[in-house]
Design a protein around this nucleic acid. Structure first.
Length: 203
DNA sequence: CCCTGATTCGC
DNA sequence: GCGAATCAGG
């Protein structure tokens, strides 16, 4: 694939929206995230303000000694790095954080009844439907949960919700999922129960 | 381990 | 110009 005007446009748009390089690569298809990053740099639209790995912007006051500080360590095979002047100074104004809107933090009590209508959430464990052992096991696992929020979930993090969605006291398990399943081992255990074991458990 | 972006350098 | 390999960091 090549960087047609159209593809570059998509790249710019998505990058501007704060999408990650891998997401962009996935969207475009035919390119890797490396290709995307490489292109981003060549286009000069690098430094995104909200980058987590943002390096501490060099706040050089009076950089006396122009000690070339290789941002990346020259790998063994690297040729002799020419001690060239690093002109990186670009007195630009702060870029208005293009990040996706920060989730408005509503007061918990003002949305007591509101339940986000996203993916169908799995049923909360109902004490009268799961075995005491499984329940105990799950409670134990939940103590070690990663407590991820919705945005932090990936295809391989356990999506079992814990807590009350109507309050701040809510998060997702986040532990490693059982391959192919949406939950970790413990939660798969309570989520997918054979009918046989469910039957007659009802009061 | 999963992910992120940054950089280098042969092509 | 391109992007795999590699690096640094969360």
């Amino acid at each position: 694939m090549s960087w047609t005007d159209e593809r570059v446009e998509i790249l710019k748009k998505m990058w501007g929206e704060g999408q990650s390089a891998s997401q962009i690569a996935k969207e475009l298809g035919g390119v890797t995230r490396n290709a995307v990053i490489g292109k981003v740099h060549r286009l000069g639209l690098s430094n995104r303000t909200a980058s987590p790995a943002a390096k501490p912007a060099a706040k050089e006051k009076a950089a006396a000694a122009p000690k070339a500080k290789p941002a990346a360590k020259p790998k063994p095979k690297a040729k002799a790095a020419a001690p060239e002047a690093e002109v990186e100074a670009k007195p630009e104004k702060e870029i208005p954080a293009t990040q996706s809107a920060a989730p408005p933090r509503m007061a918990a009590h003002l949305r007591k009844q509101i339940v986000p209508a996203g993916q169908p959430l799995p049923p909360q464990p109902s004490a009268n439907e799961i075995s005491p052992e499984a329940l105990a096991s799950v409670r134990e696992v939940e103590k070690g949960a990663k407590r991820l929020n919705l945005m932090e979930l990936t295809e391989r993090t356990c999506k079992w919700p814990i807590g009350d969605p109507a309050t701040e006291d809510f998060w997702f398990c986040g532990l490693a999922v059982q391959t192919g399943k949406p939950y970790c081992e413990a939660h798969v255990g309570v989520a997918f129960q054979p009918m046989s074991s469910r039957r007659d458990r009802r009061r």
